[in-house]
Amino acid sequence: MPQDVEKAVAEAIQAVLHDTGREVKQVGTEMLLAADLGLDSLDLAQTVVLLERALGKDPFREASASRTVRTVGDLAAVYKQALASSGGVAN
């Protein structure tokens, strides 16, 4: 399951890079969303919508304080936590 989430996150980011006409690079866990991948808030918004379609969950819809999402790994962790608390991938 964790691998699946990381894979889904990487694929969503690559889809966003592709749709926005940028080079589709390998996405690593340690990469910074903004500095390394060049994602802005619109890119993140699209990534989150794509992930909601892939994983059936949008953790950012639930208000949560002080969540720092700087790296690809941080983003994947947010989804892992949300999926764990809801008992798996919702359909």
Binding site: L42, L44, A45, V49, D58, R61
Partner: peptide, 10 residues
Amino acid sequence: GVPSSVTGEL
């Protein structure tokens, strides 16, 4: 528009 938790709508 579709709802977005990040930007309101996309």
